[in-house]
């Protein structure tokens, strides 16, 4: 995949160029490209004086980082205990059918990524679906279409 990597120096300039800035830099790269492109990892290693193996180790450790492209819109279905009891499974099934992808996958047009997460701490409004960073409570199957379209 071809990317415009001209933004990388600007990201590096936001922090001091040392190993301590690694996670902050990776977070910004993730935000910019929706994943961590291989070239960006190599540039990060060079610019922060961190071995590439360390950069790879950190980026595979945290769930917040992805090494494969992710969709523009990220839909997270909570499957904590409360959400599970109040129908998260049916929601997941509905999302998977409508988007044509399984949980953990990204649609081919890179528009959507569907994820299943554990408790997000909003059990009172179960079942919860998070679209990008917005929380939606008491979601039922009939809301799924609207959530996919508008978020």
């Amino acid at each position: 995949m071809n990317h415009d990597f001209s933004k990388l120096p600007e990201i590096f300039d936001r922090y001091s160029r040392n190993p301590e800035s690694l996670i902050a830099v990776l977070q910004d790269i993730q935000q910019e490209y929706h994943y961590l492109p291989c070239e960006a990892l190599q540039e990060t290693a060079k610019n922060l004086s961190v071995p590439l193996s360390k950069v790879f180790s950190v980026s595979t450790f945290y769930n917040a980082f992805s090494l494969t492209p992710r969709g523009k819109k990220i839909i997270r279905i909570c499957k904590g205990t409360a959400c599970h009891i109040r129908g998260a499974y049916q929601l997941q099934h509905q999302f998977e059918t409508m988007l044509g992808i399984k949980a953990g996958e990204t649609s081919k047009d890179l528009k959507y990524t569907l994820e299943v997460v554990n408790c997000v701490g909003a059990c009172a409004m179960a079942p919860v679906v998070i679209v990008d960073e917005k929380y939606h409570g008491s979601v039922d199957v009939s809301n799924v279409k609207r959530l996919i379209k508008r978020g």
Binding site: L41, P51, L52, T60
Partner: peptide, 19 residues
């Protein structure tokens, strides 16, 4: 050298070279 590191976490953790 730092040619290898731990990759992933939990059950899937392994020792591997970058990428």
């Amino acid at each position: 050298f730092s040619a290898i590191s731990t990759v992933g976490r939990g059950h899937d953790k392994e020792i591997a070279p970058p990428l």
